[in-house]
């Protein structure tokens, strides 16, 4: 049994992780998470501090990092070559740490090929670059359809490819985590890297959309 002191301590930890104005449905599994976390912290498996650090990553995500990498590839041919050769090596300078055995694998959209990513078995996603995946990426319909009817799914996202463009679906079923390198839109010749970053969207890096020309 935990001592009273331990108990009070973990209680305070909870108070601090709550945002009272935010919706937080405390169903069975939400309570189970608290219970498991408290028990494991008491056993010394990890500390409350380590948990908070992990929570910050989940909180803030890192979607902007993907856009930074794409804009850099558009403006720096050596970096682009490195990214396409070995994504993990190329992004190491951004302090990106891929999880477990996974590696970053970038695929380039061209005038001839459009790439789109799915994980039909679960929801594999390049989290260190794009943050946590959107609901639709994890949804049954996306996972069940895009490998078989990619053009129809792309159309639902408003993406209609010119005649002659090959669609290449990547089923992210093992150790690679895929990042689509979208095509740099026309009309951005004089743009700075920062301006280009602002154009890159998460969905374009998954491949369900393209990066539109600036308006």
């Amino acid at each position: 049994m935990p001592t009273i002191g331990d108990h009070d301590h973990s209680h305070e930890d909870h108070e601090r992780t709550f945002q009272p104005d935010e919706e937080d449905s405390l169903g069975y599994y939400a309570i189970a998470e608290m219970a498991v976390r408290e028990l494991l912290i008491e056993r010394g498996i990890f500390t409350a501090d380590e948990f908070r650090r992990h929570l910050e990553v989940a909180d803030h995500g890192n979607q902007a990092l993907g856009a930074k990498v794409v804009a850099r590839a558009w403006t720096d041919p050596d970096f682009k070559a490195s990214l396409l050769r070995d994504g993990s090596v190329a992004v190491a300078e951004y302090d990106v740490e891929m999880l477990g055995h996974t590696r970053l694998y970038a695929v380039e959209n061209t005038h001839d090929v459009h790439n789109v990513i799915v994980c039909t078995l679960c929801s594999c996603y390049p989290k260190p670059l794009l943050g946590l995946p959107p609901d639709w990426y994890k949804s049954r319909n996306y996972r069940a359809r895009v490998a078989r009817e990619p053009r129809k799914v792309l159309a639902e996202f408003g993406t209609f490819l010119p005649e002659g463009v090959t669609v290449r679906v990547h089923d992210s079923n093992a150790d690679m985590r895929y990042l689509v390198l979208p095509m740099r839109p026309a009309g951005t010749e004089g743009y700075t890297v920062e301006q280009l970053e602002g154009l890159v969207t998460r969905d374009a890096m998954i491949g369900v959309t393209v990066v539109g020309a600036p308006v």
């Binding site: 490998a147 078989r148 009817e149 990619p150 053009r151 463009v165 090959t166 669609v167 290449r168 679906v169 990547h170 089923d171 992210s172 079923n173 093992a174 150790d175 690679m176």
Partner: peptide
């Protein structure tokens, strides 16, 4: 080839599907 994965594939016959296999 998508047409190998799905004999009834109705997109472009050049479309492909890539995945990792151990």
């Amino acid at each position: 080839r998508q047409t190998e994965a799905w004999p009834d594939y109705d997109g472009d016959p050049g479309d492909t599907l890539d995945m990792e296999i151990y």
